[in-house]
């Protein structure tokens, strides 16, 4: 039960490749999930007849069920109906799940914006759609910037569940290295350190963004 440097050296390239896979899925998923979340969040804020019942039920359901079961449901369920690759299912599951959380945040952000701004925009002749795009959504996104950055950390962790649908990401690699060499400390510690490096990088970016938006705020105040 110690760290085996030889195993570490031989498997390190595999770990790097797997890290690439993890980052790739996390980045693709977060980009689409943010767009999806803003879209769904805006619908749930506006509540257009009919549609919002479906979208808010979707948000509620996906927030209150386990991601792993969602992944199984989509992977084994959809592949029966149509030919789709594991990677598409993987991205879809992450987007649907984490997008639901982002949607709820965005809706909350939109609701917290002063109603007067909306009315002022209408008074100036902007349409409902333009008001959303130009004024409300940018403000809501600034408000939920922090929670979106937290979402990035969560998505990175969520990608670990993709190992069960054949995606060769980081946790899968740790699992495989351990089954091959029976070196649990080496295999899982290596992965844990890489996950922490990713996590701390995201935290660092978040701090930088905080500082930037603070500066912006100070400037506009003076």
């Amino acid at each position: 039960m110690t760290f085996n440097w030889r195993v570490f050296q031989t498997t390190f390239p595999d770990f790097m490749r797997a890290t690439g896979v993890t980052i790739q899925y996390a980045v693709i998923a977060i980009v689409i999930a943010v767009i999806w979340g803003i879209f769904i969040g805006s619908i749930n804020f506006r509540r257009p007849k009919g549609i919002w019942r479906i979208t808010s039920a979707y948000v509620c359901f996906f927030r209150e069920t386990p991601l792993l079961v969602q992944i199984y449901f989509l992977f084994y369920g959809l592949s029966r109906l149509m030919p789709v690759s594991a990677s598409i299912i993987a991205v879809a599951a992450l987007v649907l799940n984490d997008g639901a959380f982002i949607a709820e945040n965005v809706r909350g952000g939109l609701q917290s914006i002063n109603k007067g701004q909306e009315e002022a925009a209408y008074a100036l002749g902007f349409s409902k759609f333009q008001t959303m795009i130009y004024f409300l959504i940018p403000q809501a996104v600034t408000k939920v910037q922090d929670s979106i950055m937290n979402m990035v950390s969560i998505i990175i962790k969520d990608t670990s569940l993709l190992m069960w649908i054949t995606i060769t990401e980081l946790t899968y690699m740790a699992h495989r290295v351990n089954s091959k060499y029976y070196q649990p400390v080496t295999a899982y510690l290596t992965a844990a350190v890489i996950y922490m490096a990713l996590f701390l990088s995201v935290q660092g970016i978040k701090k930088l963004m905080d500082r930037r938006s603070q500066k912006k705020y100070e400037l506009s105040e003076s």
Binding site: I156, K157, S160, T171, P184, F199, L200
Partner: peptide
């Protein structure tokens, strides 16, 4: 906050 539950469980299970 940084390490996935999945990894922790697999490690505990293996160790």
């Amino acid at each position: 906050r940084g390490i996935p539950d999945m990894l922790v469980l697999l490690f505990l299970y293996a160790a």
